[in-house]
Design a protein around this nucleic acid. Structure first.
Lengths: 148, 148
DNA sequence: ACTTGACCTGGAGTGCGCTCCAACCGGTAA
DNA sequence: TTACCGGTTGGAGCGCACTCCAGGTCAAGT
């Protein structure tokens, strides 16, 4: 498997694969007689896991640290577990934040729909108190142009 | 309310507030006689909403576009609604991806705990087939050093 | 009167994460 | 043989989102 095949299978560009190798995220692969990188299938699992770490918000530093620990073998097992547990908590927190935002968005989308329908809406009585809608009692007469 | 107070209340730095103003995310505030920015309380709701958009993965371009639409008033209501609906779907997808990752992490953390306890573990039989653990039948004898 | 501190502007610098490029090399097919 | 294709390297460039700094103004407190 050469770098082009791996790019296709992994969804990363050849440039990105070489970049990941350069910074140490990917192990240095074997080379064929012409000096070209030759990959084993197993690298795909590692890339997939790296992608997951990245797409769930782990930065390059931590991914690099995890990759380094991985090369150290079983001696680093507990360090890696602790990293994953820390990351797990971040993911849990992120899911909570995302879910909250979903409520905010639903309220807002609903409000906009009602306004588009020409329904008279007083933002002060909107259910969602944590968006920029929902004026406090002290503010009166603000319109969507000011608050949204 | 001056920029320092707003920074404290919003959690953004004064530099960031000025930067947001420069690129157009925040409306240009009034100035006092000395040329200093004076903010109204209502800006806090807008900043909070911008923060939410950002922290749920909306990039600066789209936030800028939304901010621009906002300044156009009610004429942009349906465009804004469509943007929010698009973003809502992204958030839903993100939550799904995060939740999936949670399962992956739980499996992996559990595996590591068992390995730390000295329990013999054959990664081939691991429950989680979508991580870099869980070798396909064709691969045999790979150890954590190769696969994790 | 002087000092302190918050503010002002414009512009440079930073870190992340790629992405692109020039210039080159080697194997294969017409 | 020639042309092409897919690799190789090192290094430059880019978009995002700030962050920091120099050098200045102004208002208020001692």
């Amino acid at each position: 498997m050469r770098i082009g095949d791996l790019a296709e299978k992994s969804g990363l560009s050849t440039d990105t694969l070489r970049y990941y190798e350069k910074i140490g995220l990917l192990p240095k692969p074997l080379r064929d007689t012409a000096g070209r990188r030759v990959y084993d299938q197993t690298i795909l699992r590692w890339i997939d896991f790296l992608d997951r770490l990245k797409s769930t918000g782990m930065g390059i530093r931590d991914r690099l640290r995890y990759a380094d620990l991985r090369t150290m073998g079983s001696a680093s097992l507990s360090s890696r577990r602790r990293m994953l547990e820390t990351h797990r908590q971040k993911v849990v927190d992120d899911i909570a934040r995302m879910s909250e935002m979903l409520d905010v968005l639903d309220d807002k989308i609903d409000l906009y729909k009602r306004m588009e329908a020409g329904e008279p809406v007083d933002p002060s009585f909107e259910s969602c108190a944590r968006t920029e809608h929902g004026a406090p009692p002290s503010l009166k007469g603000h319109t969507d142009e000011q608050s949204t």
